[in-house]
Amino acid sequence: MLTAISNKIFNQSILDYHQYNDVHQAISNPFEKSSIEHLLYMKNWIDTVQWHLEDIIRDPKIDPVTALDIKRWIDRSNQERTDVVEYIDSYFLEKYQEVKPAADAVINTESPAWAIDRLSILALKIYHMQEEATREDATAEHRAACQRKLDILLEQRTDLSTAIETLLEDIAAGRKYMKVYKQMKMYNDPSLNPVLYKGEK
């Protein structure tokens, strides 16, 4: 199942990152470049780096110049994340291009790749909540509270994985159809962000 493969790859990416735990560590994607596995690994690596950038920027003692650099890094990362999600959806569009939707077929609230995006973020929540649930310098109350949250996250992963597999089965059977809207992000586009295009005058 795709979600089982995805969850395994996301865990691998997270563990690979935490060997160094450094946002500057370059990605070393172990999968064939043309494969869906390559895209899944890349997707989670972007998410993992951004997770830690979000931690760093919340340091109340951070230097403002450094904070601005990180904010711009996060903006670039958001664009990269969106691009990779769209590449993953392109994989599904190609995979199911021969499927003829039934006359009563309906569209899903989100595309398969955006659901997988949530699965990637969930893998990060699980990893870091597991850390907190077993943190030796934390109180017993803290660990117990985090364990309860971890149990919910694990249940959520099961439910989300099931929902994604059902969606893919429905698309393959023609009960649902894919319709992908490109994420028309405006803040990075000099022609659409008023601060940028007014600053050019």
Rank of each mutant, 00 (worst) to 15 (best):
Met1Val: 03
Met1His: 05
Thr3Cys: 03
Thr3Gly: 01
Asn7Val: 01
Asn11Trp: 00
Leu15Ala: 05
Asp16Trp: 00
Asp16Ile: 01
His18Lys: 00
Gln19Pro: 00
Asp22Thr: 02
Val23Gly: 01
Ala26Met: 05
Ile27Asp: 00
Asn29Gly: 02
Glu32Gln: 08
Ile36Met: 05
Glu37Val: 01
His38Gly: 06
Leu39Trp: 06
Ile46Met: 05
Thr48Gly: 00
Lys61Ser: 15
Ile62Gln: 04
Ile62Asn: 03
Pro64Asp: 02
Val65Trp: 09
Ala67Trp: 08
Ala67Asn: 08
Ser77Ala: 07
Asn78Arg: 04
Gln79Leu: 08
Asp83Lys: 14
Asp89Met: 06
Tyr96Val: 11
Tyr96Asp: 12
Gln97Pro: 09
Ala102Lys: 13
Ala105Met: 09
Val106Ile: 15
Asn108Thr: 14
Trp114Gly: 06
Arg118Gly: 09
Ala123Lys: 02
Leu124Ser: 10
Ile126Lys: 01
Ala133Pro: 10
Ala133Cys: 06
Ala140His: 09
Glu141Gln: 10
Ala144Gly: 06
Leu153Cys: 03
Glu155Pro: 05
Arg157Asp: 11
Thr166Ser: 10
Leu168Glu: 11
Glu169Pro: 07
Glu169Asp: 15
Ile171Gly: 08
Lys179Arg: 13
Pro194Ile: 00
Leu196Pro: 05
Tyr197Leu: 00
Lys201Ser: 09
